[in-house]
Write a protein that binds this DNA or RNA. Structure first.
Lengths: 223, 223
DNA sequence: ACATTTTTTTAGACAAGTCTAAAACTTATA
DNA sequence: TATAAGTTTTAGACTTGTCTAAAAAAATGT
């Protein structure tokens, strides 16, 4: 595996995240927003990553990962997500506080450290956001499917299945704009009755009851 | 507290270590050796640290820390030594494997992280080498005095006192070349009978029994 | 289909940190 | 004390990653 700078690793992890978030290819501007820099800087970096054969890059088109890039990204993500688990499980951070810190810890490379950390944490398969942690060989477990009820506020996912397949239920879902494959973001949860407000496909707000949420399975997105 | 780059922090911690190791002022070459770089690079960096008022620097003379530099170094060292404790206590590294890794972890700055880590580790007062860990306010505990028996192989220290003050014992010590203030390095320990081989003042090898070692108090050196 | 807007890339500059080679200074030695 | 030897600093170059401004390409709207 090629040795990468912290900046290169950041870009690679970000691209992986964006790609597996759905997009086939990712735009320069999207990357710029995600790594908090300017498009010009992204162009420069993309050239370098392309030279190292980690991404497929054609000017003015998007980028995608090569097989080598994908594998490399998985090892970076492994480090990142193990640290996330450490921060939440051991240091009692909230799942929404750990991103920035994990990003710094991710760049600590000592391979033995990662293995020991993994062991110490009990070989977790998923991070606090529900995203899978690649194993030593870069292998991913399937993403866990959790019910919409269990999705934390602010987290988004893709609707993958429903438990209640009655016509009534499906008709209701159809009517409010929920369907298999839809992107769903949890905007708010009402403690009182377990109902919640959703944002479907970044477009439509929908209010669902606890009962409805319990019957919808979601696959969490990274981030 | 000024915000420093990872490189600046490394230099500062190194200078602190060298200064408290005994030297009043530290030479460019000593620093170069310690941070594994060239004298020319050190000169450049010293100018920068002097500009930030973290060190007292006069060309062609040594450097020493200003009060601000000392304080800053203590916070860097706090991070460093807490990570050392984590690596040894939690991840089961040996005390001699942790230097390089702690050096990387040291640069992760999130202040809340350091506080949580401290708490998680049970507010340790000393790191695995016996060096004191500054508290949140940069305050140091005294160095612990431990018996020569407890000093790990490869670790060095200074002999600070003896429990047995009988003439016989002192005469023996004198004869083999052990005295208060001597530098002692533990070369080897014999499991079988608890005896050990020492290296006194980087000059003389001495073999002492378990009984003798138990009566000698040592103050550990950094590193 | 053409003009406008948006996105992306290039060109050139800059800051940090490192290096080598050579100059300046200090220390040791004869 | 003069010269040699060793140390430290300067000068100048290079790398990495960033930026702004401007040019080039693509997308959009009428």
């Amino acid at each position: 595996m090629k040795s990468l700078s912290a900046a290169e690793e950041n870009y690679l992890r970000t691209i992986y995240k964006l790609v597996t978030d759905g997009l086939e290819k990712v735009s320069t501007n999207e990357i710029a927003a995600a790594v908090n820099t300017k498009a010009a800087s992204v162009s420069d970096m993309l050239k370098k990553l392309a030279e190292k054969k980690l991404i497929d890059y054609r000017k003015y088109y998007g980028v995608s990962l090569t097989e080598e890039g994908r594998k490399t990204a998985l090892f970076i993500i492994r480090r990142y997500r193990l640290w996330e688990v450490f921060l939440v499980d051991k240091l009692k951070f909230n799942w929404d506080e750990v991103n920035a810190i994990a990003e710094e810890l991710e760049h600590v490379k000592a391979p033995l450290l990662v293995r020991r950390l993994d062991e110490y944490l009990g070989f977790p398969k998923f991070d606090p956001h529900g995203d899978p942690i690649p194993d030593e060989f870069g292998e991913l477990s399937d993403k866990p499917r959790i019910t919409l009820q269990e999705v934390p506020v602010g987290q988004s996912g893709k609707i993958v299945s429903v438990s209640d397949t009655s016509a009534n239920f499906l008709k209701y879902l159809d009517k409010v704009g929920i369907y298999i494959g839809a992107k769903v973001l949890v905007l708010e949860k009402i403690e009182y009755d377990g109902s919640q407000e959703l944002f479907i496909d970044n477009q439509k707000k929908v209010f669902v009851s606890k009962e409805v949420a319990a019957n919808i399975q979601v696959m969490l997105h990274p981030n």
